[in-house]
């Protein structure tokens, strides 16, 4: 009964600490969680998966947390853009694997080492097929090592999940033109098990070189 109480109290405290302030797209908000960031595959939306992930990587590196990018696609972020967004590329580990299962296995190994504070798994160009058992294992590891796993996925609709109920945080990232060369990065959170209610985070940003 006591140990149960301790676990409850600890989870209560960590949850309440996260809830203490206004919701924010930052590592502290997502710490110890499996997160899913979606881009709508419909052409009516402009995806901002990479920009949102880059913002989080820069935040993690500011907290001295090592970051790994696991890519299961034949495309990569354009590294100079990450550098101009404040990411230390020297400290960014990149893994290139074939599919979602391999990406999950690689994530498992990296999390077990306890060295990484953030893993970004880019599954936007492959079929997102990871079993619940694997996700449950990853969930346990992120809790143990106070890490964050952020899956970048495509979805047909904003409320549809690519990974199911195992993720404790689900959001949709999109960009919107504000004026010439200026954009708004919008993160619309549809599932947040800690806060319980949907929330939205917006940040203005410039276009890539040539568009801003």
């Amino acid at each position: 009964m006591i140990s149960h109480g301790v676990v409850r109290a600890r989870s209560l405290i960590s949850d309440q600490e996260a809830q203490a302030g206004a919701p924010n797209w930052c590592l502290a908000e997502l710490s110890g969680r499996l997160c899913e960031l979606l881009a709508l595959s419909a052409a009516t939306e402009s995806s901002a998966l990479l920009t949102a992930a880059t913002y989080l990587i820069a935040d993690a590196q500011r907290c001295a947390e090592p970051v790994a990018w696991i890519c299961a696609a034949s495309a990569l972020f354009f590294p100079p853009d990450l550098e101009s967004n404040g990411v230390d590329l020297q400290a960014l580990t990149i893994l290139r694997v074939a599919d979602a299962q391999d990406a999950a296995q690689a994530a498992d190994q990296l999390l077990r080492s306890g060295c990484f504070g953030l893993l970004v798994i880019d599954l936007s160009a492959v079929e997102t097929k990871i079993s619940d058992a694997v996700l449950a294992r990853l969930k346990g590891l992120v809790r143990t090592h106070q890490a964050t796993v952020l899956f970048l996925c495509n979805a047909a609709e904003s409320d549809r999940s690519a990974l199911g109920s195992m993720v404790s945080f689900r959001a949709c990232a999109r960009s919107r033109v504000i004026s010439a060369g200026r954009f708004a990065l919008e993160i619309e959170v549809s599932r947040d098990k800690r806060r319980g209610t949907p929330w939205r985070w917006t940040e203005t940003c410039n276009g890539p070189p040539g568009m801003s």
């Binding site: 967004n85 410039n206 276009g207």
Partner: peptide
């Protein structure tokens, strides 16, 4: 693995959209 360094030469104009290549 190399631990991240604190960047001081960050783009002062703020966040910039990222390209996929």
């Amino acid at each position: 693995l190399q631990l991240p360094a604190v960047r001081t030469d960050v783009n002062q104009q703020g966040l910039q959209l990222v390209r996929r290549i």
